[in-house]
Computed example of a mutant assay.
Amino acid sequence: MVASTVGLLLTLVATTMLLAANASYLNTGASTRVDDSGRFALAILAQSIRQAGYHDNAGTPAVEPAAITGLDAASLRPRRLHRPSMPAEANRSDVLLIHFTGSADGAIVNCAGFDETGEHAWSIFYVAKADDGEAELRCKYKGASSWASDAIVRGVDSFQVLYGIDTDTPRDGIANQYLTASTIAALDGEIDPVGATAEERDRDRAQKSNWRRVVAVRVALLLHGEFGSRPPGSLLQRYELFEGEPAVDEAMMPTPLQRRVRRVFTATYAVRNL
Rank of each mutant, 00 (worst) to 15 (best):
Q207T: 01
V156W: 05
R272Y: 00
A130R: 10
L179I: 03
A267F: 08
Y54I: 00
I174Q: 14
E243R: 08
F114E: 14
I44F: 00
R77H: 11
A46H: 10
Y54W: 12
R238E: 10
I108D: 01
L235N: 14
R39S: 14
T197D: 07
L179K: 10
E190I: 06
A73Y: 04
H99V: 03
E89A: 15
Y141M: 05
F100P: 05
G133E: 09
Y163L: 02
E250T: 12
P170S: 10
E226Y: 00
A186V: 09
R203A: 15
V215Y: 06
A46N: 14
A58E: 11
L162V: 04
R171Q: 14
G244V: 06
D168S: 14
A121F: 00
L12E: 04
D72A: 08
S234F: 11
L9W: 08
A251E: 05
M252R: 12
V261P: 04
N27T: 05
M252P: 02
F265A: 10
T169S: 13
L45E: 04
A21K: 08
D72E: 14
T32P: 00
L76G: 05
G155H: 13
E199C: 03
P254F: 12
A186T: 12
E226M: 11
D204Y: 07
T101M: 10
D36W: 11
R212V: 03
T15I: 02
E243S: 10
R171A: 15
S85P: 02
N176H: 12
I98R: 00
D249E: 14
G228H: 13
L76A: 04
A220I: 14
L76C: 04
A66R: 01
